[in-house]
Structures are given as structure tokens and as C-alpha cells.
């Protein structure tokens, strides 16, 4: 099957990331619990935030700033429900 390049995401992602993320509900990829991100545990590690699941402590996400750039990882989130 043929595939598109990442530019095809521009439209849908610009819609996806316009919400208040703390209100989004995320499923933890480790323990499968679902909770709003506002209830997650956030550790400040230098110039980074490490977001951990309130149920099992696993890392849900990281946000790291450096040299005027920002890296976002959602490595421990299996899916996010976005308010529409």
C-alpha cells in the first residue's frame, strides 16, 4: 500500500493540538488506566518536564526545552481522547 509523507499530518495535527492538553484523557501504555493529564505527576528535571502516570508511576510523556527548541515525547501514552 502506498503512503503519504508527513506533510499530510499538517491539517489534522494543527486541529489536534489546539485544545487545553490538561483536559485531555490519556491511556497509560503500561497499566492501561485512563485519566486526565491534569492528574498526572509531573517532575521537573532541569529544563524538562517528566509526566508520570498517577496509577503506576510509568513515564507518560516528556517535554524538554533546549537551545530555543522543544522536544515532546508521548512514549507512554497509548491514546489521547481530545475534547471537541
Amino acid at each position: 500500500m502506498s503512503h503519504l509523507d508527513g506533510n499530510a499530518l499538517a491539517g489534522v495535527l494543527s486541529e489536534v493540538f489546539t485544545f487545553d492538553p490538561t483536559l485531555a484523557r490519556a491511556r497509560c501504555a503500561n497499566c492501561y488506566s485512563v485519566d486526565v493529564l491534569a492528574r498526572a505527576m509531573v517532575y521537573v528535571d532541569g529544563s524538562a518536564f517528566v509526566v508520570r502516570c498517577a496509577s503506576c508511576d510509568a513515564v507518560l510523556a516528556t517535554v524538554m526545552d533546549g537551545d530555543g527548541r522543544r522536544w515532546v515525547s508521548l512514549k507512554g501514552v497509548s491514546a489521547i481522547e481530545i475534547p471537541r
Binding site: 524538562a48 513515564v59 516528556t62 524538554m64 533546549g66 537551545d67 527548541r69 522536544w71 515525547s73 512514549k75
Partner: peptide
């Protein structure tokens, strides 16, 4: 952990290998 999420794969301070 951090190398997946933004930090440099090697990290030599004399070369300022801080980030991707």
C-alpha cells in the same frame, strides 16, 4: 531514556553535544 526524547546520542561536553 533522554536520548530518545531530545538529548544527544553521545553527549561530549567539549563538543557541546547537548541535543539531537
Amino acid at each position: 531514556f533522554w536520548e530518545q526524547s531530545g538529548y544527544h546520542i553521545h553527549g561530549d561536553p567539549w563538543k557541546e553535544e547537548r541535543y539531537w
